Simulated scan of single mutants.
Amino acid sequence: MRELTIEDVRAAVKGGSVFACGGGGWVDHGLEIGGAAVAVGRPKLVQVDELPDDAIIITATAIGAPAGRDWEMIGTDYIKAVKLLMDNYDGKVVGIMTPQNGMSSTINGWLPAAALDLVVVDATGDIRAHPTGKFGTMGMAGRIDHETIQVVVGGKRATGSYLELVVKGTTAKTSSVLRTAADMAGGFIAAARLPLPASYVKKHAAVGGVSLAIELGKAIIEVEEQGAEAIIQTICDFTKGEIIGSGKVIKKDVIYSGGWDIGTIVLDVQGLPLTLHVMNEYMAVDDSEGTRLSTFPEVITTLSTKSGEPVSVGDVQEGMELAVLRVKKEYIPLSSGVKDPSVYPEVERALGVSLVEYAFQSQE
């Protein structure tokens, strides 16, 4: 167990931005909420093995689409979501984890943990960001024999879109309800969900996911003054990743629909198109002949060739020069959630491309 600091906040946002894979929130929001966490309390990061098997861990997150522009989430929304879950759950909550890394999602639970005297658990539901909550549920999405509880809080007070919702049911059904609530609240909303014992998290989460983001962030910060090439090389070295294409964005066809940003981004790579398939995050990459180069759950991230910084889907513009990072799945911890075939069809239908046949292929 160790106390998290403002330096950890900055590093978590830097490293989390790589694992954001084009989504995972916003840098400014992550710094704001993380800064508030270390200002109001002393959040502590614990390894899941430090907790007894029966200790209850919940997941704190934000749900929505990175390009959504009409949302409002303030620090108290994250705290209230966790408090409402604790008030409506028949058990003692000990710790908070995040369902994914991201620009802000790596530190999702730090503020409510600090405010409510809980610990931050060094585990993630997925090492990288993903489009639906089901990917981050550590294999619970397909369970119809388990009732869970999920809570959302947020929305613009000035426009009357603020809402609070407590819902119980199967993980799959309640996750769909939360996505609708996020859309109704303006595109993004704070959430707390899925109380599970530490014994389950130990077996099914991406254990050590928060520390991984922090350490990557520290490595990036050390070389920032050396420029873009040094940053990109450091990211590749740390993650064992590779640049699978680099060029100018020649087309961005991404629209907001039903709580998601869906579409494609095309780069001109030495005169040939490279297509990135987007559902909030980058889910697949195809070359000019339609050959699949990378598929979720691999890490797929766009990096600015000018700054070396990760560029989110919402910030990508035509004319930008980007490098596409791929980290093979053999080099990242994979949770049970991303190994669950039942969570893929919803995304495949939205994108119109196959994912599951590639996601479960043995690594070359």
Rank of each mutant, 00 (worst) to 15 (best):
A81S: 13
G102D: 09
R42Y: 07
E357R: 14
A39F: 12
I189K: 07
E32G: 03
E330Q: 11
V324F: 05
V338W: 02
L111D: 07
E364D: 13
A113F: 01
Q270A: 15
V324E: 06
G34C: 08
V207P: 02
A230M: 07
S104G: 15
M184Q: 10
E147A: 10
S335Y: 01
V151T: 06
G337W: 02
G208Q: 09
L165D: 00
M86P: 01
K252A: 06
G64H: 05
T148S: 13
D253I: 10
T59L: 02
T295P: 02
V152W: 02
L216K: 05
T180A: 11
V46T: 09
D49N: 14
P66M: 09
D237Y: 03
W110V: 11
Y200E: 12
S304F: 07
A65L: 12
A141Y: 02
G259P: 04
T159W: 10
M73T: 15
I300G: 02
T148D: 03
P99A: 14
V327G: 03
I265V: 15
E357K: 15
I127R: 00
T305D: 07
P273R: 09
D28A: 15
V166Q: 09
T295G: 07
S294V: 11
P273H: 10
L325Q: 02
N280F: 04
K202D: 06
I262T: 12
A182D: 01
S335R: 05
S335P: 08
S362C: 06
Y200R: 10
C21A: 15
L325S: 01
M103A: 15
K328R: 11
Y200V: 14
G245N: 08
